[in-house]
């Protein structure tokens, strides 16, 4: 029992550090992607976004920066909440209202992220082509299998976290005063 508890604490501490690194990486990566968009695209970032380099201006990149910034912000909040969840586990607060709330907030942010990623792709196509001549501007609308899978998984995670949160609430209610 004690050994398992130590394993939970060790793994949670590791995940907390990973989350911290991701939290630092998100804004830096976001900034680097939009300052070196062509290179970032060759590395696989926003590889589905098509643009014409002849008409690509700073205003396009700025618009792209702000549009995708929304997603980056949601991802940052999600990782922040996940980090809080692991901090609680690290301190031994497993199955407490605080840790359940953190997990629930993470799953909510994840649902938001998956839902917003669809219109953001459309907005990005507009942002990257609004300086193109009339007739060459693009409007991308796509919903692929992986979008559906991601949304489904996020809802599953949300439901699980909700069940955990409610279970913790019931347990604490039972344990104390009615």
């Amino acid at each position: 029992m004690n050994e398992n508890y130590q394993k939970v604490q060790h793994l949670s501490k590791m995940m907390k550090n990973v989350c911290t690194m991701i939290m630092v990486a998100i804004p830096i990566a976001h900034l680097l992607i939009w300052t070196n968009f062509e290179k970032a695209q060759s590395w696989g970032f926003y590889h589905r976004t098509s643009y014409d380099a002849n008409y690509l201006l700073t205003s396009n990149l700025m618009a792209g920066f702000f549009v995708t910034g929304l997603l980056a912000f949601i991802a940052f909040i999600a990782i922040f909440e996940l980090r809080k969840f692991f901090i609680h586990n690290c301190e031994g607060d497993t199955f407490t209202i605080e840790s359940a709330t953190a997990l629930s907030r993470f799953s909510k942010s994840f649902v938001l992220y998956t839902i917003f990623s669809i219109p953001v792709e459309t907005l990005l196509s507009i942002a990257m082509s609004f300086n193109n001549p009339v007739g060459e501007r693009t409007l991308t609308l796509s919903f692929q299998t992986y979008n559906f899978t991601l949304i489904f998984l996020s809802f599953v995670l949300f439901t699980i976290s909700w069940v955990i949160k409610e279970s913790v609430n019931i347990a604490s209610e039972n344990a104390q005063i009615i």
Binding site: I170, E173, N174, Q176, I177, I178
Partner: peptide
């Protein structure tokens, strides 16, 4: 507005206390 389990606990007297609101 409480769970059936809590009503059961209340009936059996296995609770620390009861809120005035309850």
């Amino acid at each position: 507005g409480i769970t059936v389990q809590n009503i059961s606990l209340l009936k059996s007297g296995k609770v620390k206390g009861i809120r005035f609101a309850t």
